[in-house]
Write a protein that binds this DNA or RNA. Structure first.
Length: 104
DNA sequence: ATTTTGACTTAAG
DNA sequence: GCTTAAGCCAAAA
C-alpha cells in the first residue's frame, strides 16, 4: 500500500470512537512514527478532509486542547467533545476516562 | 534542494 | 506550575 504518513494519520483520526480522544503522540505511534507528534499536528492544521476528519478528538499528551483555529477556538472544540460524551477535567480532557484504546 | 514554521513531547531549572 | 531547551517529522515557501 502506498499510504503516505499523512493519509495514515487522517485515517486513524477518523477511526477514533465517540466519547474518546487520542493524543498527537498516540496517533503518531499508530501511524508508524512515534516521534512525529508535531507532524500530526501540522497535518491536522492542514486537515484537507476537514469535516470527515474529527481533528477535535485529537488533544495534547496532557489532554489539553490546543490549536483548532475555528469559531471560538478550543472553547468550541471542548463543547463539541463534551457533547460527544468526553469527560472533561477543567480545561483539559480526562484521559483517565476518555483515553482512546486502539484495541478493546 | 534548503529553510522556516508548527494544533507535539519530554526533560530540566 | 511555568518557561526554556532540545529532539523529531511533515508541509509550505
Amino acid at each position: 500500500m502506498n499510504k503516505s504518513f499523512k493519509n495514515t494519520v487522517y485515517e486513524l483520526t477518523r477511526k477514533i470512537p465517540h466519547s474518546k480522544v487520542a493524543t498527537y503522540g498516540q496517533i503518531a505511534i499508530l501511524a508508524g512514527k512515534a516521534k512525529a507528534a508535531r507532524a500530526v499536528g501540522a497535518l491536522m492544521r492542514i486537515n484537507p478532509d476537514a469535516p470527515d476528519t474529527p481533528c477535535h478528538r485529537v488533544v495534547a499528551a496532557d489532554g489539553k486542547l490546543t490549536g483548532y483555529s475555528g469559531r471560538g477556538g478550543i472553547t468550541t472544540k471542548k463543547a463539541m467533545l463534551i457533547k460527544e460524551g468526553v469527560a472533561f477535567k477543567g480545561d483539559k480532557v480526562d484521559l483517565t476516562k476518555s483515553a482512546w484504546n486502539n484495541f478493546p
